[in-house]
Amino acid sequence: MAENDPQLLKGVLTMVLLTLLAEEEGYGYAVVVRLHELGFAGLAEGTVYPALTRLERQGFLAARLERSSSGPARKYYRTTAPGLDELARSRRSWEELVAAVGQVLESPAPGNERDTSKTKKEA
C-alpha cells in the first residue's frame, strides 16, 4: 500500500480499531503489528495507543489485564456492544462518504473535456 495520508488515517482510525478488536482482542503493540500487516505501514504506535485509551474511556472498548512473562501485565482490548453500535454508525457514514467521493471522482474533470475536444479537432 502507498504511504497513507495521516489526516485520512486519523479519520478512519476509530472504525479500523473497532473492527479489528471486534474480530479478535489484542493489546497495544499487537494491534499496531496487525495494522502494519494490513497495509497501514505508516501508522505509528504513538497514534494507536492514545486512540485505544480514548475508545476505552468512551466505553467503546473494554480492557482486561493479562500477566506477561516478559514484564508488566498487558492490557487487552476488545470491542463492546456500544462499540459495535458506534462501528455500525461510522460504517454507514464511511459508505456514504465513499459513494459521494466516488461520484465526484467519476465525473469528467473540466480540464480533461477541453483536452479531448481539442484532440478531436486536431484529428
Binding site: 499496531v32 516478559s70 514484564g71 498487558r74
Partner: peptide, 9 residues
C-alpha cells in the same frame, strides 16, 4: 501499559 507495549515492541 506503555511499559508493556514497549517491552513487546
Amino acid at each position: 501499559e506503555l511499559a508493556g507495549n514497549l517491552r513487546a515492541a
